[in-house]
């Protein structure tokens, strides 16, 4: 198991290296730099030139990349060209609010999906099963942007007992205040994730329920609960872990739709605006960070497979 994991780890490092190089080249292939995107900006050409020099953007690409790489190895991810502050500091400020929302939504959605998914799988074709399946289909099909706006209209405007946007009431920021602000974006995200997960859980459990060893367990007269928890769940867990692990990176990069509609301060919005503005150090760090998350999520999924499924060891 350990050598297998070690091999995976080495692969991950190589992938990250490749990602950083491709990102760097692609990013510089895009036209313009942060001071050049708008032709109406009345900046003196000499000021622009000096600015490029000060930020070492006038150097050849290769030396820029190598300089960046050596700084990263020393743990220095550079300063944002827009904010003129360390990238890590800027990301660090935004990560907690993103995590608060995405992690809560993830845990709630997964928990609900597992509970409901098992329930409806054991009562296949019952009215509850049909109801949840229809609902989850609707949940997958509905654009979240629209759903979010409907919720805002309903609960922040028609029956205004919830705030429409933001994470804190300026000047308040108590836990209760944050919970209140969190409710609407949370509902949207839980619906979105639940709708996806519950179908996976249901089909995974159904799949296992039809296996011979479950039938023989029933024939041996084991109790329903024992069968479910001892025989069904561990085997149904694999596909669920895959789906859950693959959605991990999204938790750390934020939920763009929720952050935009609900003006939730977080990483997602920061990433998009920085990319639009060609904030190179932020783009590089974010890409490396996202790639690492994907790699780590895969790594975790692999490790969990090895733990759960003895056949893979």
């Amino acid at each position: 198991m350990i050598p297998e994991l070690g091999r995976r780890f080495m692969q991950t490092v190589i992938v990250l290296f490749g990602v950083s190089m491709v990102t760097f080249l692609l990013m510089h292939a895009a036209p313009g730099h942060p001071l050049q995107t708008n032709p109406e900006l009345r900046l003196d050409p000499t000021a622009v030139e000096r600015w490029l020099q000060l930020h070492q953007l006038d150097q050849p690409l290769i030396s820029q990349y190598l300089a960046w790489l050596s700084r990263v190895f020393r743990g220095d991810f550079g300063e944002s060209l827009l904010y003129n502050r360390p990238v890590l500091e800027l990301m660090g400020e935004r990560l907690p609010s993103t995590l608060l929302l995405t992690l809560t939504a993830f845990v709630l959605a997964l928990f609900l999906a597992i509970v409901v998914g098992i329930k409806i799988a054991t009562q296949q074709n019952s009215w509850l099963d049909r109801f949840v399946c229809t609902l989850s289909l609707a949940g997958i099909s509905v654009p979240y942007f629209w759903l979010a706006m409907v919720l805002v209209l309903l609960f922040a405007y028609r029956f205004p007992f919830l705030p429409a946007v933001g994470m804190r009431t300026p000047g308040d920021g108590s836990i209760l205040d944050i919970l209140k602000h969190m409710l609407l974006p949370l509902i949207v995200m839980v619906i979105a994730n639940f709708a996806r997960y519950v179908r996976y859980v249901r089909s995974a459990v159904l799949d296992v329920l039809q296996q011979d060893y479950v039938r023989s367990a029933i024939a041996r007269g084991l109790k329903g609960k024992d069968i479910l928890y001892r025989h069904v769940l561990p085997n149904a867990a694999m596909p669920i872990i895959t789906v859950a692990a693959l959605s991990l990176p999204m938790l750390f990069t934020g939920a763009m739709v929720a952050e935009y509609v609900f003006a939730w301060p977080g990483l997602g919005r920061f990433i998009v605006t920085s990319t639009m503005a060609r904030d190179y150090p932020v783009i590089m760090t974010v890409n490396l960070y996202t790639a690492s998350l994907v790699a780590i999520a895969n790594f975790i999924a692999d490790a969990l497979y090895l733990l759960i499924d003895p056949r893979l060891r």
Partner: peptide, 21 residues
Amino acid sequence: NIYYRYIPNQEAQLIELLAGK
């Protein structure tokens, strides 16, 4: 006090204005 609040979504801005926030 003045609070300058960043709300990227213009519809949400309107709703907050109508809600008195």
